[in-house]
């Protein structure tokens, strides 16, 4: 059968071959366009964020934007210092990572080195469900469950606070860190584990002294991507952390993050080209630059551990 189709192909008239080749070319071009759309989206993000925010910097200097300590662009006199928003983002993200990194790493080490297959089969879907909960639901949970719960212990805690938002955000990031770290740990070859066990090590000693360092670039990539996720998270902080831009690193305070500010302005009336409109693009530009840096570092680290094994 192979022989007959081969001879047919050889005997096919040149026109048929040309059509076939054209068809192949066409399909490849269509698929290429699909792939290129990703590049187009990236370019579009940069261009749109750049052009829509450029107007702002005609009236506000970059120096004022990055060093000003007051953010009140919609009031008179307008203040354009982005530090309060950055401060809110840093504080909530720090709280989130304070929760997510220890818990996520512990779960990853436990699942990869200690747990039996049976336990793993049960735990992984739970983590996936946790990762699938919509952020607006987490926001609701932070505002109406976690904050009242914390207020029992901390009676002075305001209704909107960075602590509850950060804690819930941390739990939200746990599945991402644990699953990426576990992947990295599982790609550590068994030979290394056996070498350690053969030296008389316990599970914990093997996990901590051999597996964790061997998987470290993968694990740290999960941390970095976790930071990026925390910085970009929007709904939890807009619902539970408050909308008041303040320079404060106190978790018990209420404060606005960069993302929360964008949401707050978007909820109001927003004419194209107005100052408010320009500021959210400027804030968005800073946001996307920050996450871009973290993502690049994170993926670089991830590639490194892929190359190692």
């Amino acid at each position: 059968m192979t022989i007959s189709s081969l001879s047919e192909a050889i005997a096919a008239p040149p026109r048929k071959q040309v059509i076939r080749r054209l068809k192949e070319r066409f399909i490849e071009s269509v698929l290429f366009l699909c792939a290129f759309s990703c590049v187009a989206v990236t370019i579009a993000i940069m261009v749109i964020l750049g052009t829509e925010s450029i107007g702002l910097f005609k009236t506000v200097s970059l120096w004022e934007f990055f060093t000003g300590t007051e953010w009140a662009p919609l009031f008179e006199p307008a203040k354009y210092g982005i530090l309060p928003l950055v401060c809110g983002t840093v504080t909530t993200s720090a709280i989130a990572l304070f929760v997510a990194i220890p818990i996520g790493t512990t779960i990853a080490l436990f699942l990869s080195e200690f747990a039996s297959q049976k336990v793993r089969v049960w735990v992984k879907p739970i983590l996936e469900i946790l990762a699938g909960v919509p952020t607006v639901v987490y926001g609701y949970f932070a505002l109406l469950f976690v904050t009242p719960l914390l207020q029992i212990v901390l009676p002075d805690l305001p209704g909107f606070n960075m602590l509850a938002a950060g804690l819930v955000m941390g739990i939200m990031i746990v599945p991402q860190i644990s699953s990426m770290s576990e992947d990295a740990m599982r790609s550590v070859p068994d030979e290394l584990r056996e070498g350690s066990y053969a030296a008389g090590a316990t599970k914990l000693q093997t996990a901590w002294n051999v597996v964790f360092p061997a998987a470290f670039s993968g694990v740290s990539s999960s941390y970095i991507l976790g930071i990026s996720r925390a910085v970009g998270e929007t709904m939890i902080v807009s619902i539970a952390a408050g909308l008041q831009p303040t320079i404060s690193f106190n978790p018990m305070d209420s404060a606005a993050t960069m993302t929360a500010y964008i949401v707050q302005v978007s909820l109001g009336d927003l004419p194209h080209g107005s100052t408010g409109y320009q500021t959210i693009f400027a804030v968005g530009f800073l946001l996307v630059s920050m996450t871009l840096i973290f993502n690049t570092i994170g993926h670089w680290l991830k590639r490194r551990y892929r190359e190692q094994y």
Binding site: P189, E191, L192, E194, G195, S196, Y197, A198, A199, G200, N209, V210, P213, A214, Q308
Partner: peptide, 15 residues
């Protein structure tokens, strides 16, 4: 394993 050492088929130094 604390009394019996082992050397494996392929070298497996720790990182």
């Amino acid at each position: 394993r604390m009394r019996v050492g082992m050397v494996f088929q392929r070298p497996n130094p720790f990182p």
